[in-house]
Design a binder for these strands. Sequence first.
DNA 1: CAACTATTCAATGAAACACTTGAATAGAGG
DNA 2: CCTCTATTCAAGTGTTTCATTGAATAGTTG
Lengths: 219, 219
Amino acid sequence: MLNERNLKDLLYQEFSRIGKSLSSPKRLEILDLLSQGPKSVEALSKATTMSVANVSQHLQTLNNARMVKFRKEGNYVIYELADDVISDFITSLHKLSEKQFSQVQQIKQEFLNANLDTEEVTLEELNERMEKGEILLLDVRPKEEYENAHIPGAVSIPMEELKEKLTSLPSNRDVVAYCRGIYCLWSVEAVKLLRNEGINAYRLEKSVQDWNEFQDHIN
Amino acid sequence: MLNERNLKDLLYQEFSRIGKSLSSPKRLEILDLLSQGPKSVEALSKATTMSVANVSQHLQTLNNARMVKFRKEGNYVIYELADDVISDFITSLHKLSEKQFSQVQQIKQEFLNANLDTEEVTLEELNERMEKGEILLLDVRPKEEYENAHIPGAVSIPMEELKEKLTSLPSNRDVVAYCRGIYCLWSVEAVKLLRNEGINAYRLEKSVQDWNEFQDHIN
DNA sequence: CAACTATTCAATGAAACACTTGAATAGAGG
DNA sequence: CCTCTATTCAAGTGTTTCATTGAATAGTTG
């Protein structure tokens, strides 16, 4: 028989399934990757340096919490976020974390300082200077992610191809590179490469999601 | 030395601390209770039917994740949510859960059906009829929670005192009872009691938080 | 249909966790 | 200053979760 205490236990158990899915660092990483677009198990395995079986297991628990869904496509199983709401939720988790963990900021800063004396670009600046045609915006994520969604006007050169294509870039325009957001470090790498080549390069810390939010705000 | 993989592991580990704090049903219940206002360890222990030591331990992990803060007051240690942002975050977790778990809805419905053929009141209705003075709004939460925050115009009669005060209620006005929100069942109890007394009683499923949100929306 | 690939399943040992119990602490009040 | 109370700490136990491994499955391609 269902009494009040039972009911509460049942309900909070259900609620906690979402919490559980967010309680593992690896699962959060998977969710972040999926927020850039659908991916196969193998692709996730590579990106996270986990075994395929392990990733599959995590995806299973995420699926139980209805955080992701999947479809079969040929030999592959393609996973994606179950819902736009979830992408928003993950973003708000990040914001909350950052707000309360100075440690997160510290870790990030330590790394960036060791790697780059970086000048940041804001979305406002970007918007302005894009319209004037003053800059070249570079999306250094994998091609699929660019195709899934990108900042309007951006050119896709995946990190892997950047070295070869360095010479084809204009040296008379400033270049701004972005990838998956604040904790994605490809853009840092890209800026380093470009500067070595004598190009004025800057890092945009923001992601496509941030861009969308920014657009919603000014409209 | 901090390399890219290390950095990611560290960062996601930090992020996951919030997830961890949301991964235990008991902790979620504690957080919900705290979103109604500050509470002592003992009070939480009673409300959740857990041992004091156990609650204390959970509060410790919540504190590590900066989800709660505490102050000492006489003999007692009073815990509360660390931040308004966290209350919002918990609310959005509930909404997300409800959206994806038909099971949650089902559990709730089964219980309510077994207990009450309930007519729900919407916030719009409430607003309208409150202004006309047609109804008496009853807050059946503990006095401290009422004092911490309540819907304007509501009268506080904690559940424990309701039985004794039944006769002092007007039988010529409709009564609407509310407590902590959709999963708080005191309002269900209250409506049952009131109807037995021949009073036209209805349940408001919403909470003070919902009311505040509603007010923000219409302004 | 045989070989191959991507994914999942099942079993293992190791680590993390929840809850209990009983002792320790620290503040309040007589 | 001693007692009482609320809370925390520390140790022990049983359970759940994790990553890893190797086998099983299912779908595709020759």
